[in-house]
């Protein structure tokens, strides 16, 4: 059943070997790349399904327009066997697609939840309305978006090429650590610890936003996430250790 659907969808997806390549290289399986790949697959699946229904509907809506006010529909009357097949066959087709998607989703999920051994640990504390990042050596950074009209602080700085695992908790209410560019997100709660990990592969600056409603300045609870080269990271960290800004 799954194989059949695989064949069908596979036929529609000739040019998407992204994930396979990553696996061959023995590289770290990256949530962001996996997300983009699966998202494209799912979009195609949805477009096919939606397209079939939409096209049928449009066709019928035009074709079966009544020609006279007294006209009556000639819809088929189903025999018992037809009734059952029109229930069971679609049910199995949908189910097959569901299990196919579930299998795909599970595979990606395992990547999301398997933290690489060498990951750099950062503790994230959420509070109204601020993020605090604490590195393993005790260096702490914070970011103040609205401080006297001008943003201040470093936010999260990470070296390129090393996975980062975030150990997260909240001091007050539920927040959520939404890291759009790396396709990961998880809530922070008081009294509980949650994790996410991501893999910065190139130098870039992105942003973490709070994605769980947390009150008046929810919209301003964000911080930059800077992926910098390893040497830049080391010099930044050294400066931080000496108490530099």
């Amino acid at each position: 059943m799954k194989a059949r659907i695989l064949a069908v969808v596979g036929g529609l997806l000739p040019g998407m070997p992204v994930l396979a390549e990553a696996a061959e290289a023995g590289a770290i399986q990256d949530p962001a790349a996996g997300w983009d790949h699966l998202w494209n697959e799912v979009l195609i699946d949805l477009t096919v399904m939606g397209g079939v229904f939409a096209a049928l509907a449009v066709w019928w809506l035009i074709k079966y327009k009544a020609t006279s006010p007294t006209q009556i529909g000639r819809g088929p009357k189903l025999s018992r066997a037809q009734t059952w097949s029109w229930a069971l066959v679609p049910a199995f087709v949908f189910m097959a697609d569901d299990f196919f998607l579930a299998a795909k989703g599970w595979t990606l999920w395992n990547i999301y939840r398997t933290v690489p051994e060498n990951a750099m640990e950062v503790k994230v504390t959420g509070m109204m309305w601020n993020w605090q990042f604490e590195y393993e050596n005790g260096v702490t950074t914070q970011f103040y978006p609205l401080e006297e009209g001008e943003a201040k602080g470093d936010g999260l700085v990470v070296p390129v090429g090393r996975p980062v695992v975030l150990r997260m908790t909240s001091l007050d209410v539920v927040h959520s650590f939404g890291l759009t560019d790396y396709r990961v997100k998880e809530d922070l709660m008081p009294g509980r610890i949650t994790y996410i990990w991501f893999y910065p592969k190139e130098v870039k600056e992105s942003v973490v936003t709070c994605t769980e409603y947390c009150g008046m300045k929810h919209s301003y609870m964000y911080a930059p996430v800077k992926a910098v080269s390893a040497t830049d990271f080391d010099s930044w960290m050294n400066k931080k250790k000496q108490g530099g800004a």
Binding site: K123, R167, I193
Partner: peptide
């Protein structure tokens, strides 16, 4: 304990 939970 809230500070240290989750430490590896």
């Amino acid at each position: 304990d809230k500070t240290f939970l989750g430490v590896k």
